[in-house]
Simulated assay, not measured.
Amino acid sequence: MQKSHQRPVGLAIWLVLAGIVGLGAAFALTLEKFEALVDPDHVAGCDFNPIVQCGANLDSAQGSVFGFPNPLLGLVGWMAPLVVGMAILAGARFAKWFWVLFTLGLTFAFGFVCWLIAQSIFVIGTLCPWCMVTWSVTIPSFYAVLLHSVRIGAIPLPQSVRRLADTLMGWLPLIVTVSFVAIAVIAELRLHLLAFFF
């Protein structure tokens, strides 16, 4: 049986977990936004200090890029990985065109998250805890789905690139860790986070 027809069970389990975590973070942020709309003096439960807080991010222009609170995107968007993961575990097999569309969706999410990370660190000057939870599942989800789409040939690339993508799947934890460390170092250099905790 060809590799492109095998069920990616590990990826499916990750997508289910990521979907649950992402939905949880989006739901928590949505509740905080509703509380703030009802009570202008509301202090978000995730406001720990001037640097680590949700309030400033939710109230900023970046917090409602498309004219509505960003967490609503998460409530809708995180359903896709959850449903796809559950479908794979239930035995579904998706066509290559589906994986292309799914990869495009996660590419948008990844690009949006990267933009929000930059805005948080360099413009707003705060780190939102629930936003960081979202980052922590969006980034590895994008890497994993992109590599899977390449290795099965959904994204038409040479066989050598497909083999590389298959190899890199085994290195995914390291790739993700390096990404997180890079974000943490940039945030520390810009925001001096350690000064608020030590």
Rank of each mutant, 00 (worst) to 15 (best):
F197G: 10
I175C: 10
P40R: 05
W97K: 07
L191G: 05
V21G: 03
G170A: 01
V185E: 12
Q159F: 14
L11T: 10
I139K: 03
V150D: 02
T107W: 11
P156M: 04
L174E: 03
L31H: 04
P81E: 14
L31W: 09
M86W: 11
G55L: 04
F102E: 01
L146H: 08
V150S: 06
S141E: 01
A56W: 00
P50F: 11
L89A: 15
P71T: 06
V123T: 10
G55Y: 01
L37V: 01
D39R: 05
V161T: 15
P129N: 08
S179C: 13
L116E: 13
C131R: 05
F102L: 14
G19I: 00
N49F: 09
F27W: 14
M86C: 15
A80G: 11
V43N: 02
A182R: 13
L127N: 07
L73G: 14
L75W: 11
L73M: 15
Y143R: 06
T103V: 11
S149A: 14
F98Q: 14
V113M: 13
A56D: 08
S179W: 09
G55Q: 07
V150C: 07
V176G: 14
I117A: 09
P129E: 05
C46I: 01
L58R: 09
R163G: 04
T107H: 00
T138M: 06
A187D: 14
A56F: 00
S141D: 03
L116N: 12
V185D: 10
G45R: 08
A154E: 08
I20S: 04
Y143T: 06
V176I: 14
E35M: 12
F68N: 04
L72S: 05
A44C: 10
W171P: 02
S4Y: 02
L127P: 05
I13G: 02
I175S: 12
G24E: 07
P81N: 15
S141G: 03
E188C: 12
F94P: 13
V176Q: 09
